[in-house]
């Protein structure tokens, strides 16, 4: 920079990238490669790499029953969250598509969950699902200890997450519905199509580009859910809600096994990456524009 004027001219575009690249370099690229590096080592309690073990951390994980359970639990969790969250968002968006009195209030209500923190929502759900004072047991007349029963705990946490995600899904789907040409509905009505037929043969295909985008975002987000699980179940009961992210947290910050936790992070990254790539591959074939 302090040499010739000509050189300064060439450098200046990069100066605008320095702030963001610096943050990315220190808190994204460096830690990303460090995580891969750590996953090949046994570490001490301070997280320093001590003994090189190659792929042993990965082999241990993939053969351990606890991690296999985590994979299974994560998969079920993601499916419930994605299907539930998208369905809720889609229903709300379809209901709010045509103008009617009070549409503003309703669309705000449907988008509202996106403003709520996972931790705050988790604490409210904890009380709703409380076995003696909770509204769920009182309304249904059941006597289930929702969060302490391995059969129901995962479903409850997943429904909470689906609820949290439904807000932004509603916005995506509303934007998608707004892009569909109104006249095709009129033409279909003239041809005598019922509203169910119109929904399945016009609305859903018309939504498919945005549907695809929403699906990818939802899957990636669902894999990263943490706060609600930490507060509601701490991975229990009986590891029934021990999703990968919670397992990473527990291994690193309770058991101080940073190497194993790093290996789990890498596996999580690979899973998310693969799913995203496969989905883009499918999109090229299946989505109608």
């Amino acid at each position: 920079m302090n040499t010739a004027k000509k050189k300064k001219m060439n450098v200046s575009p990069y100066l605008y990238l320095v702030p963001c690249m610096l943050v990315f370099a220190v808190f994204l690229f460096y830690p990303f490669f460090k995580t891969i590096f750590l996953s090949l080592f046994l570490t001490d309690k301070m997280g320093q790499a001590k003994i090189f073990v190659g792929l042993q951390n990965y082999i241990d994980l993939l053969t351990s029953e606890s991690f296999q359970n985590s994979l299974k639990v994560t998969l079920i969790f993601v499916v419930i969250v994605v299907v539930g969250g998208m369905l809720l968002g889609l229903i709300a968006a379809v209901l709010c598509n045509k103008a009617f009195p009070g549409i503003r209030v309703f669309s705000t209500a449907y988008a509202l969950p996106m403003a709520i923190a996972s931790s705050s929502a988790a604490m409210v759900f904890e009380i709703m699902l409380h076995p003696t004072v909770g509204i769920v047991n009182k309304l249904t007349g059941l006597n289930i200890n929702w969060l302490n029963d391995p059969k129901t705990a995962l479903i409850c946490v997943a429904i909470l997450t689906a609820w949290l995600n439904s807000g932004i899904n509603f916005l995506y789907f509303s934007a998608g519905l707004g892009n569909i040409d109104e006249t095709i509905y009129e033409r279909a009505s003239v041809d005598g199509a019922s509203s169910v037929q119109k929904f399945f043969s016009l609305t859903l295909p018309g939504l498919s580009p945005i549907m695809f985008y929403t699906l990818v975002v939802n899957i990636i987000q669902a894999f990263q859910s943490f706060g609600q699980i930490k507060i509601l179940t701490e991975g229990g009961p009986d590891e029934a809600t021990n999703v990968i992210v919670y397992s990473i947290y527990r291994d690193a910050f309770f058991n101080y096994r940073f190497g194993s936790a790093a290996a789990q992070s890498v596996i999580l990254f690979i899973i998310v990456m693969l799913i995203t790539l496969v989905m883009f591959r499918i999109e090229k074939k299946g989505v109608s524009y």
């Binding site: 808190f27 994204l28 460096y30 830690p31 990303f32 460090k34 995580t35 750590l38 997280g47 990636i220 894999f223 990263q224 943490f226 992210v245 990473i248 690193a252 940073f258 936790a261 790093a262 992070s265 890498v266 999580l268 990254f269 998310v272 990456m273 995203t276």
Partner: peptide, 11 residues
């Protein structure tokens, strides 16, 4: 593409 959890331990 990099999920936050892949970097959080190193960070």
């Amino acid at each position: 593409m990099v999920p936050g959890e892949a970097t959080i331990i190193s960070n």
